[in-house]
Amino acid sequence: MEFKELENQWKEMSGKIDNQKKLADSKIIKMTEINYTNKINKMKFPEITGAVVCCVALFFIVSGMHKLEPWYLMMCGIVSAIMLILMPVISIRAVFKIQSFDVSTNNYKQTLSAYNKNKMHFINVQKLSMCLGALLFVTILPVIGKLMSGKDLFKSTFIWYIYSVGFPFLYYFDHWVFKKYNSALSKAEDIIRKLED
């Protein structure tokens, strides 16, 4: 096939499209009035749900902070609280960043560049969140144990069983997700590189 042939095919198709029935005015009006708040909320649903869960856990830990002793349980409580604040904040910020865009002032090159840079930032934030999640897994278990049953789980074998099962699982899960993220990351990097060619 020659490129001329492809061009002719495109022209033929475009001609057919232009000659067909036009959109009804009422449909166009409706399209200008779409409730985008619903759409945005739907897109942020996992992040918002996660943030709510983190807030509930944070409230639970902070309200029982005075019960956390000895010192290492207090440390676990403080680290968990910091993680529970940090994780949703960085995640929701990254989602807002990737979704806030101005299609009217930028050209195609600028839009592609901004979009891919935001995407790379989002992926890196997701990766960071997964690492923080693993850390949270370590610190929150003894805190919950202490607050719910008054026991120091570090003194029982139970927590070590949980860690020994949880860690390999987290390692392989993170490894699998990171592979997917890395592939998306290299695609975004490639586009940025090609924009400068």
């Binding site: 897109m43 865009f101 195609y108 839009t111 979009y115």
Partner: peptide
């Protein structure tokens, strides 16, 4: 320009649906 810029931002949104105007399929 606006259509192509919107297309770029749509690349990763495909799977996340929102309520939309029902259009005549044909």
């Amino acid at each position: 320009r606006i259509a192509l810029n919107t297309g770029i931002h749509y690349l990763d949104k495909g799977k996340k649906k929102a309520h939309k105007v029902s259009l005549d399929e044909t």
